[in-house]
Design a protein around this nucleic acid. Structure first.
Lengths: 132, 132
DNA sequence: ATTTATGCAAACTATTTGCATTGCC
DNA sequence: GGCAATGCAAATAGTTTGCATAAAT
């Protein structure tokens, strides 16, 4: 049976406060500020368990460290190659997810569970900074 | 200036022979069979340099080890969750790449270089094996 | 002759695991 | 009281780096 520990509550609050795809280290730093006795292993383990429990979502982008997301629905991501920030993209804004999966099934014979999309480019802020 | 070493030729032949998204280790194993004196560091370094030189392509899928591909054009990937194999998907078969990038630029203000797509599911072979 | 490439060992980074102790339920 | 969770240290996995030697140009 899962137990409701102080640490897990603090870690959950921290990621909710950070609120945008933090890495384990970033969550740990945030937690560490106010609760220096909580160890990084616990952050690793609790984030993993919270994701397992669907309180948060584990986000793995190509070539990136593990990140965790308070948003629970399936969506795409954009990574800014300048500042490194990760942004959410609503799949609906960009493509017909179901149609893509169906085409892969029909043309290749694969059974498709899902697909992940990662855009790479420059975010508005960095565009602005670069153009001045 | 780049030098044409025996090792690099052997490594290039090995990945061409393997021919489907091998990991560094898989290339090393292949090389090692016939040329046990070639070290793994050299495989790491040469694969990296060959990719730099556009002789091969580096493929990084979410949560996966680095892989290398003899195919040089941009395309999508499918990963079988049962056997772990990686398959190529032609972007054209599945989506309008340029249109997707354009929508992200228009709706979010990002400047998009490219996007990567990874499908997850079960390949035909594994479907067959599972259904029997 | 010069200077890149190789091979070894060691370093490094992110993450996981073993184990004794702590503390929820 | 029992068993999950914690924290420490150590292990692991993949990859990179420093350095002396070898070999391609």
């Amino acid at each position: 049976m899962k137990r409701n520990t102080v640490q897990r509550q603090i870690i959950l609050e921290a990621i909710r406060k950070l609120n945008s795809h933090p890495t384990v280290d970033e969550v740990y730093e945030e937690v560490h500020k106010l609760h220096p006795s909580i160890s990084k292993v616990t952050v690793y383990r609790d984030l993993y368990q919270l994701a397992d429990n669907h309180d948060i979502q584990r986000v793995i982008l190509p070539g990136e460290l593990a990140r965790y997301d308070t948003r629970l629905d399936h969506h795409y991501h954009f990574k800014c190659k300048v500042c490194g920030a990760i942004f959410d993209i609503n799949a609906d804004d960009v493509a017909d997810e179901a149609a893509m999966d169906k085409k892969v099934e029909q043309k290749y014979g694969f059974k498709v569970d899902k697909h992940d999309v990662t855009f790479l480019g420059i975010c508005p802020d960095c565009q602005k900074k670069l153009s001045t």
